[in-house]
């Protein structure tokens, strides 16, 4: 967990240094799927920190893919910038996510919000925390709940995209609202903290949510994650306190 925290903060420092600068960007799958030189700098920093502690570490990261000892049972998943579009547009909602896996299961993770200078962290069985505070999800009535959604990429399943927007609308209208913050990791951190009362995503990249799903679970949320692709690199997920889980699942499973 300590290495996850260190790596997340280190990457965040790189993002902060470049925030607001003119960046070189490239589109990947779509105009909303952008990578900038800040991404690369942050990712390199996070990987370097992990490798400083575990020289042989197997690392899966968004930009570099898989590096290190590919036979290692332990591996790290790094998303050095979740919320790239926000970052480039200087919308202050972006985060860094670092997760450690053993035997295919997430063991520890950290999410750092560079502009808020807040670090969220969790380890299996140890609980979830933000800075010095232990976290617990907040159970509130549906009409007082606030949710957040992560939509799939435009090219993922165009024929079914309308179902996502319908689900979004239903969740939005039954509650205090449904946000689309642009950072799935941030959504899950806020859920663990009790600021949000449920979140979901379709075909979300697993490096975006690996740490966040653990955080949410350790903070007491019910979490469901299923593969959206054959190779498991994209997940459909639902995370919410018990009081909201069934409602959310009933609305969103239709688009999975």
């Amino acid at each position: 967990m300590e290495v996850a925290i260190s790596a997340a903060i280190g990457a965040g420092r790189e993002l902060l240094d470049r925030f607001g600068e003119q960046l070189t960007t490239t589109s990947k799958e779509s105009a909303r799927d952008i990578v900038s030189d800040a991404d690369f700098a942050a990712e390199n920093c996070a990987i370097e920190i992990v490798r400083h502690h575990f020289p042989d570490a197997r690392v899966l990261s968004e930009e570099k893919g898989e590096t290190g000892n590919k036979d290692a049972q332990d591996y790290w998943i790094i998303d050095a910038l979740d919320g790239s579009v926000n970052y480039i547009h200087q919308v202050p909602l972006f985060s860094v996510s670092v997760a450690h896996f053993r035997g295919g299961r997430v063991q520890a993770g950290s999410i750092y919000l560079p502009l808020a200078d807040d670090v969220y962290y969790a380890a299996k069985g140890l609980g979830a925390f933000k800075n010095k505070r232990a976290l617990r999800v907040r159970e509130v009535p549906l009409e007082d709940s606030l949710f957040a959604a992560s939509f799939s990429g435009k090219s993922f399943d165009p024929a079914s995209r309308d179902l996502e927007f319908i689900a979004f609308g239903k969740v939005n209208d039954a509650s205090c609202g449904c946000l689309r913050t642009g950072s799935a990791a941030l959504n899950l951190a806020f859920l663990a903290e009790g600021r949000l009362n449920g979140c979901w995503g379709k075909a979300t990249k697993h490096w975006d949510i690996a740490a966040g799903l653990l955080l949410a679970e350790e903070a007491g949320a019910l979490v469901e994650a299923t593969s959206a692709t054959d190779n498991g690199t994209k997940l459909n997920y639902i995370a919410a306190p018990a009081s909201n889980f069934r409602f959310l699942a009933n609305q969103v499973r239709i688009c999975f």
């Binding site: 260190s6 903060i9 200078d117 962290y121």
Partner: peptide, 16 residues
Amino acid sequence: YLRRSMSPEEFLRIVF
């Protein structure tokens, strides 16, 4: 965990 994962500056700034 916080003390071990951060520099003194980060520890004072982020945690406190």
